[in-house]
Nucleic acid binder design. Structure first.
Lengths: 244, 244
DNA sequence: TAAAATTGGTATGAACTCCGACCATTAAGA
DNA sequence: TCTTAATGGTCGGAGTTCATACCAATTTTA
């Protein structure tokens, strides 16, 4: 029995590279992304090597190579002894020219990333809204919202924005959605740095954020999903025009 | 500066194991899943080793170990020479008892999988409906729908069902959504085998499938999403009750 | 002040993975 | 029939990654 054309299509789509070869590179990317998105803010300390290695599921030797790369890139600094550790030094100074080169020839992939985001972020918001959130989570959402509203435009605003979206995903309680949103935010961040939009409508964006968080806290999944969809689509429309 | 509780939460959620070490195991799992979901049907031939190795992003040596494991498990048979290759021999004979053991203590993870599915499958359906689909894709969707409608209940029906859902995801044109739906179907398949639902309402399910495909072919994203959401929730409600 | 604890730094050998080249087998085509 | 081509089978060396120690530096604490 030979495979039908239909089967062939599925097979090519289902089978995916098993691994982004080199655990080392994957570690560098995860940590650099976490720093870029503001998960680890400037001046804060990374977990101890042994702990971080366990979280990432790699040996300490491999993690150390990754940290060495971050150190060489000037992203972190390391001190020894008790109370020492690896400290986030500054955000990667990504020049727009470098960022533009990084996205060259990846239009299709980036458009895919925008589509993916428009699916998972509203889904995460809706799920978060359908949960009984504990006080700690509610506080995190409120504080994240406040932070992004208060932050000036630019790099800081972008990081606060990421943190809010990640906080919403975390509030959904879904590990898978959290991973999906993290990926979406990383892709989005890359695009926003490659294509510096002159003056994003932060006022509008902030209003949407408020509306989303309010819907989540009030337990209104439909509203949360709808507004988040609009929010994602606004950004996507902007970027799609500049990617073409 | 020390990390706030909020930051700690994000950090633990964002950082994820870099890989399920052992490319070998990952290959076995991907191939076994593809066979279980009916991507490779019984009697069909897997791609040549060199080709498959490239698709999976591993060396031929590693892929061969994975195939050897599948062969040892009786899932495939291999012949040499031109026209030879590795042929899918039979579906894994998973006994319910074994499947039940596999999901023991994973309730939270499986509930997560159901939530994730209810996000990505409707999203994929909506996206597919918003595309200008070419004739080949339209044909695939129609044929997949027919196959699942025609299949009797049981293992065959389950495979056809998976294939339809994967075909819809493929029609969305999004690599990321395709991967997400593949993962969702794999998780779902595991649950359905562990918890053999006596008599799923196949009539109802088939009506939903028809409605979804019709909406996609007619270019109605909202309808496609809504019906797919209902479709996923029906299954999820059934399984949630049996997982608690 | 000295001991304890915690952190990063180093080293070694085993296991895994990769790559490339070559061999053996078999079916298709000239 | 004979040649060609495609397939799986085998081998060896190089590079990664891992696990497990142990060392060094520094702060905390008794």
């Amino acid at each position: 029995m030979s495979a039908s054309p239909h089967a062939l299509r599925l097979q090519q789509a289902v089978l995916r590279p098993v691994r982004g070869h080199h655990a080392f590179e994957a570690c560098v990317e995860q940590l650099a992304t976490a720093i870029r998105l503001g998960v680890y803010q400037r001046g804060t300390q990374l977990p101890a090597e042994r702990e971080l290695a366990e979280q990432l599921g790699v040996s300490r030797a491999t993690l150390r190579e990754a940290i060495a790369a971050l150190r060489a890139a000037g992203l972190v600094e390391t001190t020894r002894g008790r109370g020492g550790g690896t400290i986030v030094q500054r955000r990667p100074a990504r020049r727009a020219s470098v960022a533009r080169r990084a996205i060259r020839g990846r239009q299709a992939d980036l458009l895919d990333a925008l589509d993916f985001r428009s699916v998972v972020e509203p889904g995460a918001a809706a799920l978060a809204a359908s949960r009984e959130l504990d006080d700690a989570t509610r506080t995190v959402l409120s504080e994240s919202l406040e932070a992004v509203s208060a932050a000036p435009s630019g790099e800081d605003h972008r990081q606060c924005d990421s943190r809010l979206h990640l906080a919403i995903a975390a509030a959904s309680g879904s590990t898978r959605l959290m991973a999906a949103v993290t990926q979406a935010q990383a892709d989005l961040d890359e695009m926003l740095h490659a294509i510096p939009v002159l003056r994003p409508n932060i006022t509008h964006s902030t209003a949407q954020h408020k509306s989303i968080v309010r819907a989540i806290l009030a337990g209104r999944p439909t509203t949360a999903s709808r507004v988040m969809t609009e929010h994602c689509e606004d950004t996507a429309a902007l970027l799609r025009g500049l990617l073409g």
